[in-house]
Amino acid sequence: KRCPSCQAPIEKNEGCLHMTCAKCNHGFCWRCLKSWKPNHKD
């Protein structure tokens, strides 16, 4: 998949759905690609 903010390629190996892009530091949900918020729901 690609970061929804900067389009950098992102690879997920394991862990939770909260992802942070290493290039732009954007926090997002791996499943729905929406911005991550404390009360995030898919």
Rank of each mutant, 00 (worst) to 15 (best):
K1Y: 12
K1L: 02
K1P: 08
K1F: 01
K1G: 00
K1D: 05
K1V: 03
R2N: 15
R2Q: 15
R2W: 05
R2A: 13
R2C: 12
R2F: 10
R2H: 13
R2V: 07
R2T: 13
R2G: 14
C3N: 13
C3Y: 04
C3H: 06
C3F: 03
C3A: 00
C3K: 01
C3I: 15
C3V: 04
C3R: 01
C3Q: 00
C3W: 00
P4E: 00
P4F: 15
P4T: 11
P4Q: 04
P4C: 14
P4M: 09
P4H: 11
P4A: 13
P4N: 00
P4K: 00
P4W: 08
P4S: 08
S5M: 15
S5C: 13
S5A: 15
S5R: 15
S5I: 08
S5D: 08
S5T: 14
S5K: 15
S5E: 15
S5Y: 05
S5G: 15
C6N: 12
C6Y: 02
C6T: 04
C6G: 08
C6D: 09
C6L: 05
C6V: 04
C6H: 06
C6M: 03
C6K: 02
Q7G: 14
Q7D: 15
Q7L: 11
Q7S: 03
Q7I: 04
Q7K: 15
Q7A: 10
Q7F: 07
Q7H: 05
Q7M: 13
A8W: 14
A8I: 04
A8Q: 11
A8V: 06
A8T: 10
A8P: 02
A8Y: 11
A8G: 11
A8D: 05
A8N: 15
A8E: 13
P9T: 09
P9Y: 05
P9W: 15
P9Q: 11
P9F: 04
P9V: 05
P9G: 09
P9E: 12
P9A: 07
P9K: 04
P9I: 02
I10S: 06
I10F: 05
I10K: 01
I10D: 11
I10A: 07
I10M: 10
I10E: 12
I10H: 02
I10W: 02
I10P: 02
E11V: 03
E11Q: 03
E11A: 07
E11F: 13
E11C: 02
E11K: 05
E11N: 00
E11D: 08
E11G: 04
K12G: 14
K12S: 09
K12C: 06
K12W: 12
K12P: 12
K12Y: 08
K12L: 07
K12E: 10
K12D: 06
K12H: 08
N13I: 15
N13F: 04
N13V: 12
N13P: 14
N13R: 10
N13D: 07
N13Y: 06
N13A: 10
E14W: 04
E14L: 03
E14H: 02
E14M: 13
E14S: 10
E14P: 11
E14Y: 12
E14I: 05
E14K: 02
E14F: 02
G15H: 02
G15E: 12
G15K: 05
G15L: 02
G15T: 01
G15C: 09
G15R: 09
G15A: 11
C16E: 15
C16K: 15
C16A: 15
C16Q: 15
C16R: 14
C16P: 13
C16G: 15
C16V: 15
C16H: 13
C16N: 14
C16M: 14
L17R: 01
L17I: 05
L17Q: 09
L17C: 07
L17W: 07
L17V: 11
L17A: 10
L17E: 11
L17G: 10
L17P: 10
H18A: 08
H18C: 03
H18N: 02
H18W: 05
H18I: 08
H18D: 05
H18S: 06
H18F: 10
M19L: 10
M19S: 11
M19D: 12
M19W: 06
M19I: 11
M19E: 07
M19C: 11
M19T: 14
T20K: 12
T20H: 08
T20N: 10
T20E: 05
T20M: 10
T20R: 08
T20V: 15
T20F: 03
T20Q: 10
T20G: 05
C21H: 00
C21G: 02
C21M: 00
C21R: 00
C21N: 03
C21W: 00
C21L: 01
C21F: 00
C21P: 01
A22Y: 12
A22M: 12
A22R: 06
A22E: 12
A22H: 04
A22D: 14
A22L: 05
A22V: 05
A22P: 13
A22G: 06
K23C: 01
K23Q: 03
K23V: 05
K23N: 07
K23H: 06
K23E: 07
K23P: 01
K23F: 11
C24G: 05
C24P: 06
C24T: 01
C24S: 04
C24Q: 04
C24D: 10
C24W: 01
C24L: 03
C24R: 01
N25E: 10
N25K: 09
N25F: 06
N25D: 13
N25S: 12
N25M: 10
N25C: 13
N25G: 14
N25V: 06
N25A: 08
N25T: 09
N25W: 03
N25R: 06
H26C: 01
H26S: 12
H26A: 11
H26V: 05
H26R: 07
H26Q: 07
H26W: 02
H26N: 05
H26D: 12
H26E: 09
G27H: 15
G27A: 14
G27M: 06
G27V: 13
G27I: 09
G27T: 15
F28Y: 10
F28R: 07
F28Q: 12
F28P: 12
F28K: 05
F28S: 10
C29L: 01
C29R: 00
C29N: 01
C29F: 00
C29E: 03
C29S: 01
C29H: 02
C29D: 03
C29Q: 02
W30G: 13
W30K: 04
W30L: 08
W30H: 10
W30F: 08
W30T: 11
W30R: 06
W30V: 10
W30C: 00
W30M: 06
R31S: 10
R31Y: 14
R31H: 12
R31L: 13
R31P: 07
R31T: 12
R31F: 06
R31E: 13
R31M: 10
C32H: 00
C32A: 01
C32T: 02
C32Y: 01
C32P: 00
C32Q: 01
C32W: 01
C32D: 07
C32R: 00
C32E: 09
C32S: 01
L33P: 03
L33F: 03
L33Q: 08
L33C: 03
L33S: 01
L33M: 09
K34V: 01
K34W: 01
K34N: 02
K34D: 04
K34T: 05
K34P: 04
K34Y: 00
K34G: 07
K34H: 06
K34I: 02
K34S: 07
S35V: 08
S35Y: 03
S35M: 12
S35E: 14
S35N: 09
S35C: 07
S35W: 06
S35L: 12
W36Q: 12
W36S: 13
W36L: 14
W36V: 14
W36G: 10
W36T: 13
W36Y: 07
W36F: 07
W36E: 14
K37G: 13
K37Q: 13
K37H: 13
K37F: 07
K37C: 12
K37R: 08
K37A: 13
K37S: 14
K37W: 07
P38S: 06
P38Y: 00
P38H: 00
P38A: 09
P38G: 10
P38R: 04
P38T: 07
P38D: 02
P38C: 01
P38W: 03
P38F: 12
P38K: 04
N39G: 14
N39K: 12
N39C: 09
N39H: 04
H40Y: 03
H40V: 11
H40T: 04
H40N: 15
H40I: 01
H40W: 03
H40C: 06
H40L: 06
H40Q: 08
H40P: 09
K41G: 13
K41T: 05
K41S: 10
K41E: 14
D42Q: 07
D42K: 02
D42T: 09
D42S: 04
D42C: 14
D42R: 00
D42I: 01
D42L: 03
D42E: 09
